[in-house]
Amino acid sequence: MPRMVRSSLIPLLIVLMSSGCSTISGLWHDDASASTGEKTVQQPAGKAIALQWETDLDQRKPASPPGFSLPAVITTAAGERIVAGSQDSRLRVYDADGSELMRIALDAPVESGALQLANGDIVVGDVGGNLYGVDLKQGVIKWRYTLSSALIGQPVVLGNDFVIQTSNNQIYRFTADGKKVWSFSGLLGGLAMHLSPSPVVYKDRIYAALSNGDVVAMNAADGGFLWKRQTVLSNDAAVLSELKVPVASPTIIPASQSGGSEDMLAVPVFQGKLIFISLQDGSTLRTRDISSKASPLLIGSTLFVADAHGAVSALDAANGATLWKQQISDGELTGPVLVGSLLWFADDHGRVYRMEQDGRVAGRIALDGRIDRTPVATGNGGVLVRNNLGILYMLR
């Protein structure tokens, strides 16, 4: 289960449930199959996924909290590099074979993803509310900025700049040298999952799903507010089983790609619904009773969704109808990521799956711990997954 935090605090609170415990199951079901004509795909045995290498990312001490940082694949003149933050407050750099090349000391543990900017620098945040610009050529921190709260999600590129979303529902735009262009403050929520959405950028606008359930749209140039839509009836939950919250980034669905009547935003709500929102005014166009903690993936006119009950659904992106549904796990799935023509998923039991786009399982592997972040594709056809125990795996 993703750890729970008070979104208004900079320090992250302790895990409320053990890392081996599954999130509430059986509370939220996809009951729309009867009206959408879905078909269930038969699941073949599949081929084994190969483990290329693994490394102890966190250098964990006994009783250390679980970690959720997301590895990033970057390009350099010397070839592909893997950058990942860790619980021991260091940013680590590996080559494609898993050999550690560099460690850069930060002020606090890292739970965010990293982003490579156009100038080659790396942006990453820590749980103490520090944002860093790192020069990997020199192995030094070029600049830092103190945020109002922790960065847990992923920085997102915006031209030569970038935008971030903090755990207390603030959106920032920064230049590549760490200067703030603007900030937007959303309303605070109550309890929030440790996993956090990131903004999405589309046609000079920024869209963000906040931990209080709001989805907001703003101008990318100046941060000007455009519209807001509440995705949950109530976010004032006292216990985990009552909490409905977006924990993954929304997915843009252009009408030119889906064949629909207008551009949409697909917003996954964990222990809630998948909500399709109009980009024009934020109105709700349709919903599906699918609980998900991962971003849907749009390929052509098909939207692939991994749910919190272990099933993968292929939806018609124009109208949300189910094309097929495949049960591949008894745990909470995350993903997919596209590698070549195959979809990759992982679950909270440490299992990784790859799948054909018609729903046939094409391979699987069982790893240690649990996996709560979507796998990351490398440029050479590999897939990176990071478990809660601090182990980074390269698969193929």
Rank of each mutant, 00 (worst) to 15 (best):
Y202A: 14
D204W: 11
S211K: 15
W227T: 11
Q257R: 03
A209Q: 00
V239N: 09
S198A: 15
G189E: 07
A208R: 09
T175A: 04
Y202V: 12
D204K: 15
L233S: 15
S258A: 10
P199F: 00
D177R: 04
D204C: 05
N212A: 14
A208D: 11
K179R: 10
V216I: 15
P197T: 15
S256V: 15
A221I: 10
A248D: 06
A208Y: 05
A255M: 10
A209K: 01
S258C: 02
L233H: 12
K179P: 01
A237S: 11
L240H: 02
P197H: 07
A208I: 11
N219P: 03
L226D: 13
V239P: 00
D204S: 14
L210C: 10
K244A: 13
Y207E: 08
A255K: 14
M193E: 13
W182P: 00
W227A: 07
A237I: 03
I253Q: 02
G190H: 06
A192I: 00
D204H: 15
L195E: 08
L226F: 05
D177Q: 08
E242N: 13
P199W: 00
G213W: 10
S198W: 07
N219W: 02
V232H: 01
L233C: 09
K180G: 00
G186K: 01
V215W: 05
S185N: 04
K228Q: 13
L210T: 11
D222A: 13
Q257G: 01
A208V: 14
A176I: 00
S258N: 06
I253Y: 09
D236T: 14
L243E: 07
L243D: 04
N235R: 07
N212F: 11
R205P: 03
N235P: 02
L210S: 08
G178H: 02
A209L: 02
A176V: 00
F225N: 09
G224F: 09
N212L: 12
S198Y: 05
V201P: 04
Y202K: 10
